[in-house]
Amino acid sequence: MDELKQFIEQNRNLFDTSEPMDGHFDRFLQKLEADQRRTISHSHSQMLKIAAVAVVAVIIGAVVAGTGVHQSVKLIESGMANAENSTPMELVERTTRYVKAKVEPEYSETQKYYITLVDSRLDEIRTDNTVDEKQKAELLKAMSEMDELFVNLQKELKANPDNAVLIDAMINHYQTKIEVLNKIISNLNSIKQLNTQQDEKVDL
């Protein structure tokens, strides 16, 4: 056995007596804070990406299942098949690729277009007097919840103005919103149709 090694082991506390210079706690706290800020904004944007993907996937899934477009389902499934090994970034890209057709125009132009479209659909629901007021309120509330996510995306975009993934997520958000609205409207229409048919039967 190495005597010196033994001696060091036995007297380790006598060897480790140096202290960093005064103020090292404060210096470390400053570094920690700076590092924390970086990590938080990073994980925050990661979280938003995941949330965007989740919303897109769930809503599109619901829309597609509801309309029974089997081909689209297959398309989305194939897109999500390797989802487990993907980074959130890849997931967003893959999802957008399968969910939307090509969206290449300037973002602001795109945004205007979608805002108009969303508003016209929302008006359609609002002015539909065959819909129960309570149901209407619930529908509009659900839509405004979707808006909250969008506000977060907008905030994130302000912080990272050139982030293509964010812009994609925002466009996606509009598209899914419209799809959801279309679905709602078509459901309302089929209910209306059903009601009139029943009315007709009664008439006969």
């Binding site: 060897f15 007596t17 140096s18 470390f28 706290l29 920690l32 924390q36």
Partner: peptide, 23 residues
């Protein structure tokens, strides 16, 4: 979970041994 309070506690526990090694 990213608690900076816990991180500072860990620093306080280990800094001396780590500092002496660095030194």
């Amino acid at each position: 979970n990213g608690s900076s309070k816990a991180q500072f506690e860990i620093y306080k526990l280990y800094y001396k041994a780590m500092y002496n090694t660095c030194l």
